[in-house]
Structures are given as C-alpha cells and as structure tokens.
Amino acid sequence: MVANAHQIDFRDVEPAEWTHCETATQAAQTAFPVLPADELSSYFELNDVNSVALGVRLSPDTEVEALADRLDQIALIEVDFPAYTDGRGYSQARVLREHMGFQGELRAVGDVLIDQLRFMKRCGFDVAVLADHVDPDDAEAALKRYGVWYQPAADDRPPAHRLRRFVQNWEI
C-alpha cells in the first residue's frame, strides 16, 4: 500500500495489509492482493491460489457490470480517480452498491482532494485515501461542514424532502 498515506474512514472497515499486484500469478501467492480489474479472469483460472481475500483496482473506464459473477469473492474494490475532475468513479461506486449489491470495502484512491470527500461518502465509499499534499485536519473539518442533502444516494442518508415530513418547519 501507499506508505503513510492519510485516509479518511467514512465507515469502520476491517484493517488488512493489502498489497498491489500487477499479475494474477503474483496475486495468487499474496495474502491480501489488490489486482487490476483486467487481470481478474486470469486470476480465477488459476488452480494454486493462496490469497486470504481479494481486492480489485478499477480504472475509470472499467465496466463494473463485468465484475458481477465474481462480486461475492471480492472483499475490496479500489476506485481510482486519476484526476479529481474525472467523476466516473462516483457512478462506478453507486452502480456497485445500488445495482449490484456490493457489500465489501469500497475505497477511493488517486487525486482525492478535500472538496470531493463529501460526494464520495454519499456515493457509497467506505474509505478515501487522500492525495499526498492534502492536510487531513482540513479534510476532516470540511467533511463535517455539510449537513443538508437534497437527494438520496448510496449512503442511506435521508434527503431533505424526507426529513421535512418529520420536522414540519416549512411554514416559515
């Protein structure tokens, strides 16, 4: 894993010593490998697999639907944001959580900056690994600043219109 990288946990996750692997054969001999998505089919063809749990790393153009058959064998999915401006990872996360029922750990990596965290949290990520130069205290502070959301997403947080029914404060 990235050494000394600061990560923001949106939910408690089981800690594990994940190791990035480039090939399926390498991953098969690693306890907690994280494998590129396009190596996945080779990995599952191997007979001699000694991994304890499997992680997969997506690129923004990975078709997450292709993981459907193996999803219950995947413990961790890393969603890469090569640039903060590339928002495909948010849709990948929501599709994995809401359409495909992925229950494992969902982790945002790459160009993860402060202003993206609150969106990642809502799209179903468990963890965001901050880009190197981002101050984790600033990140935590910014994340706490937003309490109002207007739309349902992957985090079960009720949108404002549903809360309005309970607080009856709209006659102002």
Binding site: G87, M120, Y150
Partner: peptide, 13 residues
C-alpha cells in the same frame, strides 16, 4: 433545482 444541488454523483461531469 433541489435534486441537482450538491448532487454527489454529478459534480464532476
């Protein structure tokens, strides 16, 4: 307007 405000998935189209 409300649905699209701070939409978490569509901030970086």
């Amino acid at each position: 307007r409300q649905w699209s405000t701070f939409h978490p998935e569509f901030a970086f189209l």
